[in-house]
């Protein structure tokens, strides 16, 4: 599906669809006139996307899709979605793994470092433990695999990778990420793919764990 | 896919897969020897399901799947998943809508009534507002539709319905749910389907909003 994507810049959720489109060849244009906080509160926008959230996608034939995983699915191809129903189920599993096991903990840990949330020591320590568990599961799965599902890149890799961007950029310093060599290998391979690079730019791995920015 | 489902009883997340299997004809057996808190902490279980969470599913040919939406996808059929990639994207969208727009607020509101969590007035009031927004979006979508995606029941209906069970059972009393007639119609139709009834039993709509159980 080709169409228009509404998002603010540097939105890791929007990256999922943009990277999927790079692989599938779908023509996805980011609406350059979109102003977050204004456009998505307008009647015209809310008529198409009642929750007013982004990313939001309108296909060239007028179909409106919200939820970043769904948009990525829509602009993907068969290889990215999974060729068999079981492969698709594994893709859905990893998509949900990213949203349930990584995202809340990632935001809890990283947002205070970006100065957009108060720091809470207990919550941050808990978030670190949750991230360790998630990385351990990922690492173990990637022991003998190059990609999360099947033998080629899929939406599983793209969505999990995008959800890990903030962590690998701001807080997963070398000593912290050392036990997860397979996950590190997989992540580094992905962010250096031309299709990924063309969306997220040059990616710099965290050298020193960011701390709370007051 | 046929196989064994590991879950504790009355788990709305497990209902998704069990209902999907009723429609698709997939043979899904709930492991009756599973003890939550014991079995899912055993080495054998963690080897297959590293995060130790339920529901968890092992297909007859040995594939292990976690995340309830993924299990439902695996045991479903083409009609339930969506016949076209765009329909599938819509299904994924509603699955994520249930997890992102309904579930957090549902837990916040209902769990204190079930004695699962402490009551917090501010959080509960916010949860009620979130649920109103979600129901409004659902209601508006169902103005001229019988099902969420396409012309027949799909995983979109099943997953959103299962995520709404606690709300419609415990807290959405008649006066609260009155503005959402399309959603109420859709929900009532679903819970009275034989395939759904055979999993969740006879469903009783909330008559009086449950309050915090100390």
């Amino acid at each position: 599906a080709s169409g228009t994507l509404y998002t603010y810049p540097e939105n890791f959720r929007a990256f999922k669809a943009l990277i999927a489109a790079q692989y599938s060849g779908a023509k996805v244009t980011v609406d350059s006139s979109f102003v977050f906080g204004e456009t998505n509160k307008s009647d015209a926008f809310l008529k198409k996307f009642p929750l007013g959230k982004v990313p939001a996608f309108e296909s060239t034939d007028g179909k409106c899709i919200f939820e970043s995983n769904a948009i990525a699915w829509a602009v993907a191809n068969e290889q990215l979605r999974g060729k068999s129903p079981m492969d698709q189920a594994q893709v859905v599993s990893w998509m949900n793994f990213a949203d349930n096991e990584i995202l809340p903990a990632s935001c809890t840990w990283v947002f205070p470092c970006l100065g957009i949330m108060q720091f809470n020591k207990g919550n941050t320590e808990r978030a670190k433990e949750d991230i360790k568990k998630a990385l351990a599961a990922l690492n173990s799965h990637l022991l003998s695999r190059t990609y999360l599902v099947g033998e080629r890149i899929s939406l599983a890799d793209i969505t999990v990778c995008c959800t890990l961007l903030h962590l690998y950029q701001y807080v997963l310093e070398p000593s912290f990420r050392k036990p997860y060599q397979n996950a590190n290998r997989w992540f580094t391979t992905l962010v250096n793919q031309p299709q990924v690079k063309s969306v997220i730019g040059e990616f710099k791995l965290c050298e020193k764990m960011a701390q709370f920015d007051n | 896919a046929s196989g064994t489902l590991y879950t504790y009883p009355e788990n709305f997340r497990a209902f998704k897969a069990l209902i999907a299997a009723q429609y698709s004809g997939a043979k899904v057996t709930v492991d009756s020897s599973f003890v939550f808190g014991e079995t899912n902490k055993s080495d054998a279980f963690l080897k297959k399901f590293p995060l130790g969470k339920v529901p968890a599913f092992e297909s007859t040919d040995g594939k292990c799947i976690f995340e309830s939406n993924a299990i439902a996808w695996a045991v479903a059929n083409e009609q339930l998943r969506g016949k076209s990639p765009m329909d599938q994207a819509q299904v994924v969208s509603w699955m994520n809508f249930a997890d992102n727009e309904i579930l957090p607020a549902s837990c916040t509101w209902v769990f204190p009534c079930l004695g699962i969590m402490q009551f917090n007035k501010g959080n509960t009031e916010r949860a009620k507002e979130d649920i109103k927004k979600a129901l409004a979006a659902l209601n508006s979508h169902l103005l001229s539709r019988t099902y969420l995606v396409g012309e027949r029941i799909s995983l979109a209906d099943i997953t959103v319905c299962c995520t709404l069970l606690h709300l419609y059972q415990y807290v959405l009393e008649p006066s609260f749910r009155k503005p959402y007639q399309n959603a109420n119609r859709w929900f009532t139709t679903l819970v009275n389907q034989p395939q759904v009834k055979s999993v969740i039993g006879e469903f009783k709509l909330c008559e009086k909003m449950a309050q915090f159980d100390n």
Binding site: C107, F111, A127 | Y8, F36, P104, T108, F111
Partner: peptide, 30 residues
């Protein structure tokens, strides 16, 4: 980016809810 991220709806309390739910059903099971 930070300003937009600040407006994102994240379930920060998810771990608290998950823990409570897990404990409740573990007690019920055993």
């Amino acid at each position: 980016m930070a300003l937009e991220l600040a407006q994102e709806n994240i379930w920060f309390d998810k771990w608290r809810v998950d823990d409570a739910e897990r404990e409740f059903y573990e007690n019920k099971s055993m």
